[in-house]
């Protein structure tokens, strides 16, 4: 005897822009927090310059490793957009691969930053420049952790089938926040490591 099942009703449609608008506003707020820190960093550096003092000792903050982070973040922008596109087009396998790859890039960035911080030998209590170095990089790490957590939760929901061709707004929201964090790093890279 064949078992009979009653199909459950399909969940009602959602507004496709709600999550994206929320993420847009949250990303803007997060970015402005970063800008607040950056402004204080620049004011302190400018004050040091006006006083004729050295900001970082020569050769301590190197461009090389930070450049690798830069390129890793660039690559992560492609993978996170790949994830969004894959989920949107109903290709969940590719979407999960892309999300996983983005997570891997995040781990690489953590590793590189850890190396940089150890390499400089800076301490939080050392001096105002050292402190500000930690503040700006630390803020980036905090936002990176938030973005990775957002992606992980998105991945969890994608695994359970919430996101697909019918609904991909959550993945788009996570991607938007990720891209914002990438921009934060690009600014950090330019301000802290390039112009020193």
């Amino acid at each position: 005897m064949a078992a009979t099942t009653t199909p459950l009703p399909v969940a009602p449609a959602r507004r496709p822009r709600t999550a994206l608008v929320g993420a847009m506003l949250a990303s803007g707020a997060a970015f402005m927090t970063y800008i607040g820190l950056l402004a204080i960093y620049l004011v302190e550096r400018s004050n040091a310059s006006l006083a004729g003092a050295e900001w970082f000792p020569e050769g301590v903050v190197e461009l090389g490793p930070s450049g690798w982070i830069f390129w890793t973040m660039i690559m992560s922008i492609f993978t996170v957009q790949w994830a969004e596109w894959s989920i949107k087009t109903g290709d969940r396998t590719n979407g999960l691969w892309a999300l996983g790859l983005t997570g891997l890039f995040a781990a690489a960035v953590f590793n590189q930053l850890w190396f940089i911080i150890n390499d400089t030998g800076f301490t939080l209590v050392g001096s105002t420049p050292e402190f500000m170095f930690f503040v700006l990089n630390g803020a980036f790490i905090v936002f990176l952790i938030a973005a990775v957590s957002f992606l992980a939760l998105t991945m969890l929901r994608a695994l359970f089938g919430q996101y697909g061709a019918r609904q991909a707004d959550g993945v788009g929201a996570a991607a938007m926040f990720w891209n914002t964090v990438c921009v934060m790093y690009f600014i950090t890279w330019y301000v802290v490591y390039v112009t020193k």
Binding site: L8, V10, A11, P12, R14, L156, R157, F160
Partner: peptide, 15 residues
């Protein structure tokens, strides 16, 4: 975070 995500997912599982 996990519980919240699961609640949100379950809300949309079926009608």
């Amino acid at each position: 975070a996990i519980e919240w995500s699961m609640d949100a997912w379950a809300d949309r599982a079926t009608g």
